[in-house]
Amino acid sequence: MMRRRTLLASSLLALAPSSALAFGEEGAFHARLLGPLSGKRMSDESLKLLGSAMSRWSFELMERTSAPVRIATTVVSPESKELFDEPFIIWTGAEDPGTLSRLAARRLSEFFRLGGFMLVDDQAPETGAFRLGVERELEKVALPSPRIKLPPDHVLFKSFYLIPRPVGRVMGPSAVEASLGVAGSGVLFLRHDLLGALARRGDTWASPLEPDDPEQREYAIRFAINIAMYILCTDYKDDQVHAPYLMRRRTRSGPTRPR
């Protein structure tokens, strides 16, 4: 039996790129792509690969978790008000991203103030050109907090799967840096080309992995799912630790009357 949300997602896929949404899908996880900055252009091939990666991400999330997803790829200009339609955006590339206009910087600052979350995914971490360019441009933006290196016990590594380290197309550094604020806002800086590990070309994976560990792609998918669940649930898994404590505290100081 096809599940309701699969059915809805499939129908959405068929409707894409229409913006019409079905009941229950408005709040669904949706990986949106931050459009190229002024003066830059994204090739059709690149867009197609990124679209396939984001679709795969959504598909895996849908298959493995309860979270509803929207598979249709959306590209959002940093200068447009559509940036505020949803709380998640991905900024990815392999080269220097160019320059954020003052309007775009203002919009991004507002995006974070509202509680938005951005994933910065470097497709070519070996060169670092994109990462350095993004870091330069984000200087113009009011980020939620100073950048920090996330500890291994951070909720990002246990939001769904228990994973020891970030993994993407490349193994990259064993830690990730992030700027995390209140109300779920944040920026996650990846140097692992996560979307590269998820991109498809036809029926096969688009990019080989480095090193080509047989389980690396599975761990990349798990990491992507953890990121999605972190965006959807924020620090919920930390609550799980707190909940029994709260209950014990309630029972301890609780009423004397018989229940």
Binding site: R5, G27, F29, G184, M229, I231, L232, C233, T234
Partner: peptide, 16 residues
């Protein structure tokens, strides 16, 4: 029952 942006917003409000 599901993890959605609506859940995210409400939970964030309650947590805040």
């Amino acid at each position: 029952g599901r993890a959605t942006y609506d859940v995210r917003a409400l939970r964030t409000f309650l947590k805040s």
